[in-house]
Design a protein around this nucleic acid. Structure first.
Lengths: 223, 223
DNA sequence: CGAAAAAGTTGACGGTTCGTCACGATCTAG
DNA sequence: CTAGATCGTGACGAACCGTCAACTTTTTCG
């Protein structure tokens, strides 16, 4: 009895079988390699072979984890989006005014994005394609979430009755495009950028055309 | 004498040699095929072979005209950007007020983009990548042009002294992101969209933080 | 007009990537 | 300890890439 209890003190987590363990390890190894190679060569120039060559695994193994380089790229992007989304959500939820809603979102976003630039920088540095943006499902889900929160704000009377879809698009567009500019500057100032964006939208929202009756019901069953 | 003059009435433009003629024809044939194939399969899934297979030419000929599929895609995008840029420029130049500057730009942009959607729709419909935006040099030149016009407006005292780089980025971001939304709707209304964007920026610009001294001199020798 | 030169097209070629699959190694269950 | 399940391995056929020598068509020029 005692022996049995004492025999596994060095490995206090027998929860995972060895199988699952190496599986998680391999997946992580491939993901890390992919991150490095994408950063090195850019998305277009990277091949699946480049990625597995940067690991100790065989070519066939890659396909046990991901279907293609597009899928693994999506996985990487989704990881980043998944990390940032709850923070933005929280910031919006605790906002008591429109100003807090807007400024909190932009400040959080620009700070995160500036902090670990490497994860959020849109892919540049390709030989041919100068610049490129890619929205994965997880990113798009974040957009929808923002739109819903705006709609709730309108329903609650905090926001004026404006086109929530367009406002969401505008916020997203400004956030992404300004990020690009911020990261290009040698002296980065997320707070100043957030102030700019906040002022723009605070002044703008007041002037926005109000919607009379039912708001634009945008498509829900998109492809 | 008369004979010589009369011998070429059916071909009033002997300006181009036969060589140049077929060259232009081939180039156009390849470009048209590329447009069709990109629209059909999306950028990622398209191969150079797919494109030349859609013409009557041999594979090697493609490389006499374009270096890669990236380059021909850029050429197609640049064509579109080159078509839209002068119109936007003209609209801005004839503007006498900030309001005209802003509203003219958005209205023109949304109208063109709505009219021939096919040329401006960001590539969707790829198997893996949900959505993607790609900026070619010509597109980026358009951005810079807009920034310069804003700076001129500030210098002339028409615009308040704000961060021209950020304002340009915001306008671009809103324009592109709203385009995406407009094209998704079944009832497209470029004018309403332009009114929304105009109100947003007209209200916003008034509230924007003013810059004290020298404006942010952003990098000029970017890679 | 005719021949040499220039320009352009062709398709095959070596090198590489793709995604698959039969095989073997390793782990788990009983 | 063994049977079965799971997963890594690397070779394989198909396809694509970009190049290039040979060939055809156009232009130049004596």
């Amino acid at each position: 009895m005692e022996d049995a209890a004492l025999r596994t003190p060095s490995r206090p987590r027998p929860a995972l079988g060895k199988r699952e363990q190496t599986k998680a390890q391999n997946r992580q190894m491939i993901l890390d390699a992919a991150r490095a190679v994408f950063a090195e060569r850019g998305f277009g120039a990277t091949t699946v072979r480049d990625i597995i060559r940067a690991t100790s695994l065989a070519s066939g193994t890659f396909y046990n984890y991901f279907k293609s380089k597009e899928e693994i790229y999506q996985a990487i992007r989704d990881e980043a989006a998944l990390a940032i989304r709850p923070q933005l959500r929280e910031e919006r939820l605790k906002a008591r005014t429109v100003e807090e809603f807007i400024s909190g979102s932009f400040r959080t976003f620009f700070e995160i994005v500036t902090r670990d630039e490497v994860n959020f920088r849109t892919i540049r540095h390709n030989a041919d394609v100068t610049r490129m943006r890619l929205d994965t499902p997880e990113v798009i889900a974040g957009f929808e979430e923002l739109r819903e929160d705006i709609e709730k704000g309108i329903a609650a009377g905090v926001f004026p009755p404006i086109d929530a879809d367009f406002l969401m698009a505008s916020i997203v567009g400004v956030a992404f495009e300004m990020t690009e500019r911020i990261l290009r500057r040698e002296h980065r100032d997320p707070k100043a950028a957030a102030d700019f964006a906040t002022a723009l939208f605070m002044g703008g929202i007041r002037a926005l055309p109000h919607i009379a009756a039912a708001p634009q019901s945008s498509s829900s069953a998109a492809a």
